[in-house]
Amino acid sequence: MKRIYAKEEYCLGCKLCEVYCVTSHSASKDIIKAHKLESITPRLIIESSDNLSFALQCRHCDEADCTRACITGAMQKDEETGVVNYDEERCVGCWTCIMACSFGVIRREQAGKKVIAKCDLCIEEEAPACVTNCPNDALVLAERAEEEGVQ
């Protein structure tokens, strides 16, 4: 499946991926309103240390620990798209998935219902907002054979 990969050698650490992730997951879809009126949790995290930085999102693992750990069956891997997603209605906010994820890319949603926030690959869009808007093409959406079956 196509996943998002970071080219850390070209990551500027500008965090625009975060800005556009928030906008994309806001109700208004307006960059200013999303930041000033809503409080959306970014679906990605930016790791940085000294001059090294990169954005990290859910890897949509084939054998995802989060899906196994989920106590209600809210977290599921979509067989068709490969996207690991969760059903907001069934999520009880127990955070077990957060503990189970070895990448640390699941977070608590700050706004609205107490559910989790994680990358959904902007599956409705042509490409994820973070990829489209990265100013230095440091994020790519690609199929990489060697990464298939990532745990």
Binding site: L12, G13, C14, K15, L16, E18, V19, I31, I32, H35, K36
Partner: peptide
């Protein structure tokens, strides 16, 4: 009114 304090300018 436009600034969302994302600090991208600062980092760049």
């Amino acid at each position: 009114s436009n600034c969302i304090e994302c600090q991208a300018c600062e980092r760049q």
